[in-house]
Each structure stands twice: as structure tokens, then as C-alpha cells.
Nucleic acid binder design. Structure first.
Lengths: 209, 209
DNA sequence: CCGGACTATCTACATTGATAGATAGTGAGC
DNA sequence: GCTCACTATCTATCAATGTAGATAGTCCGG
């Protein structure tokens, strides 16, 4: 029963980029490049997308009425397009926020490989586990830094967001951000602990004694 | 410097379905349907793919020399194709196992939503957290069941695998499987704990006092 | 005023994944 | 003998993602 308009489907909220973009644009109007930069840095530790996905998606969102693009001059001859969320966009974001996520099937290369680690040379096996640790340690630092920013009032996006809402709402807004990053930190710590047990296991299994 | 053959690229091992299929086929020859069924049940709790992806991939793997398909009769008029891993396939799998994974960027809808939970109605927020718990509780049970199977010697795939290798190797093979599922179990427990803290936080923030 | 880093946007294409449905044979039970 | 659940395979399409590179303007410093 989907209604097809051009190549756009009128569908129920799935996941995706679209809502990540809406989330950022609830704070303030931005250009595609601004959004891309956010995905590269701060927000990028939760969601990421290349610019080649962002620009077309913004155009689609505009034609769906969720955003309004406005050309602003940039230097003497340059220009850029700044997107502002519309009332409809806010409505769509809120609707998505009020809808339960659909959880998709597991697909986890790290654990898939771990299950067959006896096929790897001991050194390679160790290296996998080490890579896992390195990866999650980096995430751990970035997420810990986010918490520090939140607590220290040093997050520009969060501050902008707070300045746009009623003071009674500040507590919730901050609490949920903190809660999110705490969860990610705990996850990273778990992954590191797991890989460390992996290293110990490898040593045990391949000990020469 | 990739060499293009047809529409197949000779590339360095990335991730994907291909190695999940090879992993299963190291145990014994199977048809596409068998593999699909495994992805639907047991292995499906680590990796999943629809049949529409499996059949073409098997054909590609055969033309890449990793597998050998053999038509076997099935009933009076039916037939099916059973794929057996080739020496080259084993080599490719081992090579992949000896290569470090590339970790891709974070993309986590559940945590993305959590960060903006103040946009949801309290009831919807609670429902999200509840869905998170339900999802990971189901995973938890499936993975716990896998451990039970491993410990009880009741895993058909594992038993077949063990019967095909030297007894000295049994310990490693079992240990890495167990290690993998233990990690997944710990992760599920962490996700449940996180969502439970979420529920508590929501109650706190939206209490009427 | 020139080079280089950065801002800004776009196109093309490959790959992967998800959904839907078509086709056809098997084997068990009524 | 018929129906039905299951086995077996395939095609088409679409959404999402990833990679590469093209184009063009800005702004800063030497």
C-alpha cells in the first residue's frame, strides 16, 4: 500500500541517516558540509555518513517537506545551502522518536572470526584481539571525552540545544545524552575485557608446556 | 591495481557473507538451502543472510575457485547442488582468518535514539528501553543455549567439525566457540543492564513530584 | 599574487543488504 | 490422489552504504 511519488516511498519510519540529520537540525540550521563535519567528529562516534550520502538525502528530505533549503552567499562569489528543519520535519522526528526500533539480525564479523580462531596462527589470533582492544580503547577515549564535555558544559552543540529550550527541560536533555555515552563506554569496556580474556585464552591454548 | 574479471574484483579480504559461508563449508559440503537454514537458526545468532544473497554468492565463489558444486539427485526428478570447499577455498579462509579485521564506523540506531530520548513521550521512551531489553533477552537465551549445547556435546555442527580434526585440536576448537558465545552473552547482559538503568532514569526524570 | 588547506557540492559506481515473489519438486498424511 | 508444509533455487528491485574522484570557490600566509 505504499504510495510512490517519484522515486520516493511514503513509508513508515525505518532507521537511517534521515533521522540522524533531523536530530542535528533540531538544534540549528546547517549546511550539508556542517552536517558532514559533525559526522566526522562529535556525533560521528555514534553515527557516521560520507558527504556523498548526505547531500542527496538532504535534497530528498527537502522535497519531502522535512527541510527548507536557503542559499546563503559565501565570500564574493561562493554560495552554500543552509537547511532548516520545518514543522513537518519536527513532527517526523518526534514520530520516529515515539516509534520502537526494529532490531535487525546479528551480523558481527569480530565474533564470527572469534568462533573460528583455531584457524588462525597464534600470532594472528593475538593480533585480532589486540586490534579489538585498540579499536574499543579509541572509542572509549572519545566517549569519555564526550562525558567530560557534557559535565563541563563544553559541548557546543549541547549548549546551543539547551539555549533553545526551557530550563526545566535542561535536566532531561543532559541526562539522556550522558546516559547514552555511559552505555557506550560500558560496552567498550566490555569489549576490551572480552578481548583481553581472548589473549589469555590464546596464551593458555598455545603454551608450549 | 585491482584486476577486473567479469564483474568480479580480485581484492583483499574484506568481510562479508563469503567467509561466513566458507566457515560453514569447512565442516562439510552443503547445499545453498542447508546454508540458509543454518543462518536461520544456529549460526544465525552471529551471522545472517537471506537465500537471495546466498545462492548468487555461492555461484560467484565457485567461479572464483573457492567451491566446487556438484549436482545430486533429490527424489525421482528433483536435484540440488551441493557445494564442497576446495583447497583454494580453505586457503582463502585461512588467509582471511590471519588478517586483521577492519573496524567500520559506529552506526548504532539504539544509542542514536537514546541520545535524544527527551523528544519521546515518557511512555514511548519506556517502551524503547523495554524493547531493547526484550531483544537482548532473546539473544541472551539463544546464546546461553549455544553454550549449553557446546558443554553437553549436543551441537551437531561442532561434533561434525570435531570428528574431522585431530583430537589435540578439539580443545582449541571448543574453547574458541565457547569464548565467542561468552562474549556475546556478556554483551547482551550489558545491554539489558543499560536499558534497565534507562527505565530507572525515565522514572526519575518524569516523576510527578 | 600564488600555493595549499579547507569549504562546498556533486556524480558515478560498486557492494551489500532487504523484500518480494516466481517456480518447481518432495514427502507425509488424509 | 490431493493438499500442504517443506526443500530448492532463482530473479528483480530497492535501499543503504562505501569509495573515488571531479569541480569550484575561500581564505591565509609567504
Amino acid at each position: 500500500m505504499d504510495i510512490v511519488i517519484g522515486n520516493t516511498y511514503a513509508k513508515e519510519p525505518t532507521v537511517s541517516l534521515r533521522y540522524a540529520l533531523l536530530a542535528l537540525l533540531t538544534v540549528e540550521p546547517m549546511t550539508g558540509y556542517d552536517l558532514f563535519k559533525h559526522f566526522e567528529s562529535s556525533v560521528g562516534y555514534v553515527w557516521h555518513a560520507p558527504d556523498s550520502q548526505i547531500y542527496p538525502e538532504l535534497r530528498r528530505m527537502e522535497s519531502d517537506g522535512l527541510l527548507e533549503g536557503r542559499e546563503v552567499p559565501w565570500g564574493p562569489r561562493g554560495k552554500k545551502t543552509e537547511y532548516r528543519i520545518t514543522d513537518e520535519g519536527v513532527k517526523a522526528f518526534r514520530a520516529w522518536m515515539n516509534t520502537d526500533l526494529e532490531y535487525s539480525r546479528e551480523r558481527d564479523p569480530a565474533h564470527l572470526k572469534a568462533a573460528y580462531l583455531e584457524w588462525a596462527d597464534p600470532e594472528a589470533a593475538r593480533s585480532q584481539m589486540q586490534a579489538h582492544i585498540t579499536h574499543y580503547r579509541a572509542r572509549l577515549e572519545q566517549w569519555t571525552e564526550k562525558i567530560r564535555e557534557i559535565d563541563g558544559g563544553a559541548s557546543p552543540m549541547l549548549n546551543k540545544r539547551l539555549s533553545g529550550i526551557a530550563p526545566e527541560e535542561h535536566l532531561k536533555t543532559v541526562a539522556f545524552k550522558r546516559f547514552t555515552y555511559e552505555g557506550l563506554i560500558a560496552r567498550a569496556e566490555h569489549e576490551i575485557a572480552w578481548a583481553e580474556r581472548g589473549l589469555a585464552l590464546i596464551s593458555e591454548l598455545y603454551s608450549t608446556r
